[in-house]
Design a protein around this nucleic acid. Sequence first.
RNA 1: GCCAGCGUGGUGAAAUUGGUAGACACAGGGGAUUCAAAAUCCCCCGCCUUCACGGGCUUGGCGGUUCGAGUCCGCCCGCUGGUACCA
Length: 817
Amino acid sequence: MDQQYDPKSLEANAQQFWAENGSFEVSEDPARDSYYCLSMFPYPSGKLHMGHVRNYTIGDVISRFKRMQGKNVLQPMGWDAFGMPAENAAIKNNVPPAKWTYENIDYMREQLQSLGFGYDWKRELATCDPNYYRWEQWFFTRLMEKGIAYKKTAPVNWCPHDLTVLANEQVIEGCCWRCDTPVERREIAQWFLKITDYAEQLLADLDTVEWPEQVKTMQRNWIGRSEGMEVKFEVPGHDSLMVYTTRPDTLYGATFMAIAAEHPLSLSVAVQHPELTEFIEACKQTNTAEAELEKMEKRGFPLGINAVNPVNGEEIPIWVANFVLMGYGTGAIMSVPAHDHRDWEFAKKYGIEIRQVVAPSDGSEVDLEAGAYITKEGVCCNSGTLDGLDFKTAFNAIADNIEEQQKGSRQVNYRLRDWGVSRQRYWGAPIPVINCQACGTVPVPKHDLPVVLPEDIEFEGIGSPIKSMDSFINTTCPRCGEAAERETDTFDTFMESSWYYARYACSDQTDAMLDQRADYWTPVDHYIGGIEHAILHLLYARFYHKLMRDEGLVHSDEPFKSLLTQGMVLKDGSKMSKSKGNTVDPQLLIDSFGADTVRLFVMFASPPEQSLEWSDAGVEGAHRFLKRLWHIIHQHIDSSNDRIADLDVSNLNTIQKAMRLKLHETIRKVSDDFSRRLTFNTAIAANMELLNAVSKFDDDSDQGRSIRQEVFDNMALMLAPIIPHVCHQLWRELGHDSIIIDHAWPQVDESALVQDSIEMVIQVNGKLRGKMQVSTDVDKTSCEAAALDNEQVKRFIGGQAVRKVIVVPGKLVNIVV
RNA sequence: GCCAGCGUGGUGAAAUUGGUAGACACAGGGGAUUCAAAAUCCCCCGCCUUCACGGGCUUGGCGGUUCGAGUCCGCCCGCUGGUACCA
């Protein structure tokens, strides 16, 4: 009989088997090698999108593969449940964010289960659960005590019409996304974590993790360590200006200073200066995004005050400039237009002197009319005693000089800024702080935690409802007992996603943030997620891990040993995302073709690190392969009702040997693809080739049937991580009592790989001109002779003299004439 | 703007350490089967040229290194992600 491939019932059966047997529930076993495979948890936006399917299929394939290799595998799943979309949905559909979120979670959990992912659901967590965020609140109060959490003012996007703070993505072409009012930059007090204290460690430890080089490079550049100087410029009649520069060797070329609009010096002059006040107001008409600030037109306003250049006593004008920001660095910079791109543009625009102080070391001229000359390879000129010195020598000379005069000092600086964790939003973890008139900001004591976010709320306006909720706000000061107010800001959602990986190890722990189980599982062996998280999420999580280490909660330096950054699933050329509304619903595909087809297709369509332009075509091809696999294996089973004879490998004919060669070459390749290369698309292609080969292998002898059984057994094993449902079933039908998820990964039979002869390519002047079959133990000389003797090759050489012959053993012979 | 990546047939891709460009699929064309269709099976399938054998061209563009470059180097073009309050 020949059953039809029926994914619906087959997948339900396999999933039921795994659930009933708790197949993916794991416990800590010190005797076994642990393997923690983690995929980035999803934001519960409503339903899974293809990016999720891709991410979680990759994770599941790796998990199942490692399990077959004998590891004690943990693969958990949970929900990054706080965030803005829940608030947007609340406004749009008048449904409380909590309800919306929990309903989404329930639906998406079912979708994940229907895809057959091997998660330990006992460890599931949602970050909006007070049992989760209470520990984040507790940890924050510890950071306050240590001085790592502190408060300062920082700019936000402010909509003057809606009277609310906007996220960068809510600012469309400089205007509020709801009311189209031009957005302003406004300084408000916010909480920060001193990630800059860990900059050096975050930089150094990048060398210890097995991450893609591109991600490490991005993080290094983001941290942006630079060695330079802080230099003090006296301002007669005012406070001096402190600036940071990486190019003190160009100090003689400084022809102006630029300060932020909100700089105290600027503000004090503005008091008597309406035009400047107007300019300062104009500078606020911008959002806070770096890309916008860099692209906007650079504008300035002369302050009418001079600063004194400490190296030569020269007075240079101070300008207020819209591209200098108060929050970053000292809010003031020195400008050397001849050797800085931005300063050059500014000087050109406002007719400020461009003075060359670096010249090419070969003595050639540079054209400063065409643009700034930016290099560290030149020599100083027009710089007094520095003239003729190279960058390093000049740097040290000027640094020594300035330090002696106490006008500045050498300084290591980072581009990285402290992490602002305050959000003026509702759907987030409340910042556990009480503001008391007498005592100031007081952390909520551990026994009063969690500060629970009220979930039963009316979400009408645009602002956060707890900002006007007296029952939430009014409280008493834990220190003095007097009436006090709660902080109504919530945490950045990156806070929750910075430690969830560790919480999975002990998500049932009610008395502590983490326990010793975290040390059994962490660091994560393999972390899988989108490349879009290469900087922020991954940097914050690394920082948090070090904070937890310093609190004694974990005992490793880094959270993620190795990292796989999957490329994005694109639709119509751009990132598939809820906000862009260009998602493809995988559910339709699961319903019509089954989970195995969807899993097979996303793994086959491209290698994990590459972006994947979605197209519906091709899914049918994956489905066809499954049907074909099912059909061919059943044909084999039906035609070998009697038992399969033992294989006698010493007594095989050429075709049988070739079939076994193909099988074991495939096992070797697929094992390498799974473990080292992580290219599942080529592993699948290799199995397709194997299926094509075995379908042509129509040897019906006992030995032939045994070989076919060997092929199918191994194919089921090799494909089990990718298409687990169908392989679960086929494995049993192939006559095995064992459960395939616990079976060992296939072994290569080295003896099957031995060949008598191989094909070699013959080139003339690098162009393919012929092929020849040679014995595997042939030496270079006879290779060369055989190549020169080839008829086709002789034609191309003609009468020309052979100048050189290159032999690459086992590959090719190149004859140069 | 800055940082990182990508660019190969009609399409998704393969080529793993500088060594046969296009494996494996999708789409398309032809055939078998069928009353017919679906499904399935078999064959063809980069471009130009040739009756054919064959030859020439081809990995975004231009240049370089090399016996040999999709792969290494330089410049340019296009696309994607990130850019600190989307997650």
